[in-house]
Design a binder for these strands. Structure first.
Lengths: 195, 195
DNA sequence: CATTTACACTAGCGCTTGCTTGGTTAGCCT
DNA sequence: AGGCTAACCAAGCAAGCGCTAGTGTAAATG
């Protein structure tokens, strides 16, 4: 629930939990499994987290937080060129999926297992990220790089990108950069590499 | 597990189960909840299904089966015009999401809860559907309607379409037809209404 | 030195889970 | 009428669940 808690031990536990949640799903992952994977006994787990839900919340928070940070950083290096910014966002998105894959898969698939409070808290982070996309898409529309309705295009693009966790192989032929380029090329904008 | 089992009672149970699986998730849905919603006692459930997994399998099989049928039917009315066929596929996809929404949401979100055997069985259905998309996308590429790599475009498009279950409101301003048009318009092909 | 803090342990409570068992009922076929 | 079967029920088992209570211990803090 804490917005910031940098205890390195805790972050390690969150990483382990994310991995298990992806492998087994949240509900099938028992506190005993989590504890074993963390190298402690199940009772000790509740020293670090109030309850099982809090672990899920922490995993998703971490992932979304990182995604936002990476996106902001990528945009900051883009002057104000709409096309560069569009590419930067797509690249940033695929890059986070690579580095924080587990957390993002959990966010996508286990969102509904969050209780009301956690969901409210995390909704703000998620909305901020989606709004960032809408801004960039809006700029691209104004610049004539792509066409369509701002909100529809945003959702279509986010859908296409999020779906990649189903099939994308980081060790395969496509780098995240190349993939981002292919996506935007498909939408009508010519491909450009970043500065 | 049966490829065909038309017992009307069973199909009713599958519909009820799909609804509950969407609302609660597969793991949180207990056999007692299922039974109550079906108007029977929990023990009686196992007269209709071998185990809980078999219910999940039946739900997903139904949905995918219907999606394939609708897609084939839509394509059959398209002569051989690549653009019409592309539109037809997109429309068919969104239409199934509307009529069989629960089953498809389950297929998307609870796929990983299937055991090995069920997964093998259902993979064939799913692959057949995805291959249909690849064919239609391939034709559209050859006709110059869209651009990019056949497999990448297929996956991007499927991602965009599947993501709609997260935000699409059937009672909202967009009809499935309109939405399909918007998507394809975004990709570069001009919008056309069907015959 | 005494005290607090962080982290871990053992043991187990109270409850729910998927599923089984053995038996009953109502409708259909001959 | 008699037999068959699909559909259902009551009762409960064995296992597993999240979580708590109480304790131990080593390092940090006064």
């Amino acid at each position: 629930m804490n917005v910031v808690n940098d205890s390195p031990r805790r972050q390690e536990l969150i990483r382990v939990a994310a991995h298990l949640f992806v492998q087994e799903g949240f509900d099938r992952t028992t506190v005993r499994m989590l504890a074993q994977e963390m190298g402690i006994k199940s009772g000790s787990l509740f020293h670090h987290f109030r309850d099982k839900q809090a672990i899920l919340c922490a995993v998703i928070e971490e992932g979304t937080h990182n995604a936002l940070a990476i996106a902001h950083e990528a945009l900051a290096q883009c002057d104000n060129d709409a096309e560069m910014r569009l590419h930067a966002m797509a690249r940033a998105h695929l890059q986070t999926l690579l580095t924080d894959r587990n957390a993002h898969v959990v966010a996508l698939y286990e969102w509904r297992r969050l209780d009301g409070d956690s969901r409210d808290h995390l909704s703000h982070l998620r909305d901020a990220y989606e709004q960032l996309w809408q801004e960039v898409i809006g700029e691209a529309l104004e610049a004539g790089l792509i066409r369509g309705d701002k909100f529809l295009v945003s959702r279509f693009v986010l859908g296409a990108l999020n779906w990649t966790v189903r099939w994308y192989d980081p060790d395969g032929v496509h780098s995240p950069e190349a993939l981002a380029g292919e996506l935007i090329d498909m939408l009508g904008a010519p491909v450009k590499t970043p500065a």
